[in-house]
């Protein structure tokens, strides 16, 4: 097999994988702490993409710069959704899952009402120039996405490990009742968790805007990949989710060497099902 092709696919997969990883950490966080499978995560990703697109149209700044302020939008939206819509239903069966489903459908329809269903393009200054690794060529924007994704994950890990907010969130994750008895405001901490999760989703969506077209289908694909990554990384495990996302990207890249067209994604789902069956708690033990 052609060396250049192998390099191009595998490293290209790695670049995609960091995007999956950063999309997955939000999902993993919300599941680990609030025990909610957040179906609205894909909608949050979509809003992040369109926010970067709209800001780019309005200001003309580089989309890779606009990703950072976009996080604020995610924090606000996540907090509001959890505080207003979900917190009353916590612990009541499928209620929270249903609400996230409703939010998903509502947000997606709002987005297509506002922005239409045509794919839009956002170009970063970095997505016109290339660099090469061996014989393979990549846009600089891909490397920038990788760097930003790693930086964001590290920042989130820092917040969770070293700040009072993070300690509170981890306490709720371990035992909400005990956390409540120790005087923590569990409802607020859950809202903060959802806010961080949505912030990560907005960030992932915003990043993807500079490397792929902005369209609803892209967000759905990112949602599916982040489900897979979050489960494989051990739902609730931030580092695991990021690592799993990266691995999935590489698997997809390798898959594209052997399989035509979209069949590369097939490999990912096969790996997913096999892993779920063999190690449902994730590839790594929960930290």
């Amino acid at each position: 097999m052609d060396d250049r092709l192998v390099l191009q696919s595998v490293i290209g997969g790695l670049f995609n994988g960091t995007l999956y990883g950063v999309a997955a950490i939000g999902l993993a966080l919300v599941f680990g702490v609030a025990k909610i499978v957040n179906l609205a995560h894909g909608a949050f990703i979509l809003v992040g993409m369109y926010l970067v697109y709209a800001l780019n149209r309005a200001t003309g700044w580089d989309p890779l710069l606009l990703v950072v302020p976009t996080i604020v939008g995610g924090l606000v939206l996540g907090y509001v959704v959890q505080w207003l819509l979900i917190s009353r239903l916590m612990g009541r069966g499928d209620g929270p899952l249903l609400v996230t489903l409703g939010v998903w459908i509502a947000i997606e329809s709002l987005c297509s009402m506002i922005f239409g269903s045509q794919p839009q393009n956002v170009t970063s200054a970095l997505s016109t120039r290339t660099f090469s690794i061996g014989a393979a060529n990549f846009y600089w924007s891909r490397l920038a996405v990788l760097g930003l994704a790693v930086a964001f994950t590290l920042a989130l890990a820092f917040v969770l490990q070293r700040t009072d907010l993070g300690r509170g969130i981890r306490a709720v994750a371990q035992d909400p009742l005990a956390a409540q008895l120790m005087g923590l405001n569990v409802a607020r901490l859950l809202a903060a968790t959802m806010a961080l999760g949505a912030g990560a989703a907005f960030f992932a969506g915003g990043l993807s805007a500079s490397v792929v077209p902005v369209a609803p289908g892209v967000a759905t694909n990112l949602l599916l990949m982040s489900f897979v990554a979050a489960v494989l990384g051990g739902l609730g495990n931030i580092g695991g989710a990021f690592a799993a996302g990266t691995v999935i990207g590489v698997i997809e890249g390798v898959g594209s060497l052997f399989l035509p067209g979209t069949m590369k994604v097939f490999v990912v789902f096969v790996v997913f099902i096999v892993c779920l069956l063999v190690r449902p708690e994730g590839l790594r033990r929960r930290a």
Binding site: L85, L89, P96, L98, I105, A106, E108
Partner: peptide, 20 residues
């Protein structure tokens, strides 16, 4: 035409809260 989906989304949220 997407309005119908918006209505459905809001209806699901309302059902989850008041009419499980």
């Amino acid at each position: 035409p997407q309005m119908s989906l918006l209505i459905v989304g809001v209806a699901i949220i309302a059902l989850a809260h008041w009419f499980p």
